[in-house]
Write a protein that binds this DNA or RNA. Sequence first.
DNA 1: ACTTGAATCGAACGTTCGTTCGAATTTCTC
DNA 2: GAGAAATTCGAACGAACGTTCGATTCAAGT
Lengths: 235, 235
Amino acid sequence: MASLSTAAQTSATALPPTRYDKRMSEILAHATEVFREKGYEGASMRDLSRATGMSLAGLYYYFESKERLLFLIQKHTFTTIVARLKKRLEHVSDPEEKIRAFILNHLEYFLANPAAMKVLSHEAEVLKSGFALELAASKREYYRICVALLGDLKQEWELEFSTRLAVLSLFGMMNWIYTWYNPRIDADAAAIAREMGDIFLRGVANGCKTSLKKTDFNSRCKESPNGNHHAAGKR
Amino acid sequence: MASLSTAAQTSATALPPTRYDKRMSEILAHATEVFREKGYEGASMRDLSRATGMSLAGLYYYFESKERLLFLIQKHTFTTIVARLKKRLEHVSDPEEKIRAFILNHLEYFLANPAAMKVLSHEAEVLKSGFALELAASKREYYRICVALLGDLKQEWELEFSTRLAVLSLFGMMNWIYTWYNPRIDADAAAIAREMGDIFLRGVANGCKTSLKKTDFNSRCKESPNGNHHAAGKR
DNA sequence: ACTTGAATCGAACGTTCGTTCGAATTTCTC
DNA sequence: GAGAAATTCGAACGAACGTTCGATTCAAGT
């Protein structure tokens, strides 16, 4: 039978990984890559068998179904990114920096694990009720954290906007990256996080109430012609 | 055989729609809905047969393959949204208003045709080389239009930022909407377009070079406490 | 009414799908 | 190195897949 420690074990119960655990992780990694390439429905168990070098029947020693395999991938990915985020936020107190940390955490993990994050983003609807419910909890927690961070910013900066729309717009900006990111063209996670952070934070900060009236904006900006827009946002 | 006018006929060759054309459109509409619900790979020809009320073999009188069916849906959707955009942009000259028109056009069509837009966004990678190439051209044209609009804004407002990242962030904000929009909770297309436009345009406008340094920003904003942030962006 | 081509259908094709099972093999324990 | 437990496998299951084909029904012109 399987060992007591599951593959998606939290760092709290850090038993030494058993042989079973290691093999499990290998299979999960290969499956993640296959799901990224062909999609969950488009990938067959025979594709996974080929990618892992394990027989078709052998896979079922680790997973009772293809659906549970997808669930484990998504659950593990979500758990990891939330855990990293919480650890990261401990060392930050400023609301703006917290949101920047959120964005950086998301994009760093996204670009370091593009396959897992694409599977998480793109196959978000395929799991059936049982699996879907458990995953929805993780998703909700992650969403709530971002809402709370933005709420703090709203209060500190005395802003007014729809938190829901702002958070979902931010997720859209970040998650859409799997459709276009090219490591040979695009900057690294830190740079993209900075630029997206600039766009989002400036966008959400409705400070100067005339800032979007074109004429006012233009005349105001003529007085202080813009320099390197990176200088201000540098951490 | 099929009539001369194809189902995805452009408005230029506006022949009266034949019986064949009308039936074709019906099938396309039903298929779009099924693809939205179950995904392209997850939907079977038997699902489409059930949804359209037509026999399995009957469908193949209109489409030579399931893949071509998806292609026709995506091609028609893209063609329509680009055509609407071009017509809309004719009546606008101001760069900011042009981008707002772009966003409004995209979101209006998105929320009026959520199934088609989800299929366009979510099944963007499944078509094979032949179909994929033709669709990539439409995609590229749409992307280029947005790049050009943003280029104009950059020039008029004397801004500096990565156009590629800004455009792709905007697409992310807009296209992600299919994962969360709920007509019972969320505002209509015009309101969301306004809010997203505010976020994006303010975000991209790096006018006041100190705008994101928290201390400076805060002190600057204390002088003119923010009012209704919608007032400025009203069309 | 009869002909003709367009439109639709039932039934089946061969293939691939996810999953199972008992046997074989490997690994671990003593 | 023998025995037990953990792991892997070949072979097959029934179901569902996309697609085809010959026959049938429908709509329109004469």
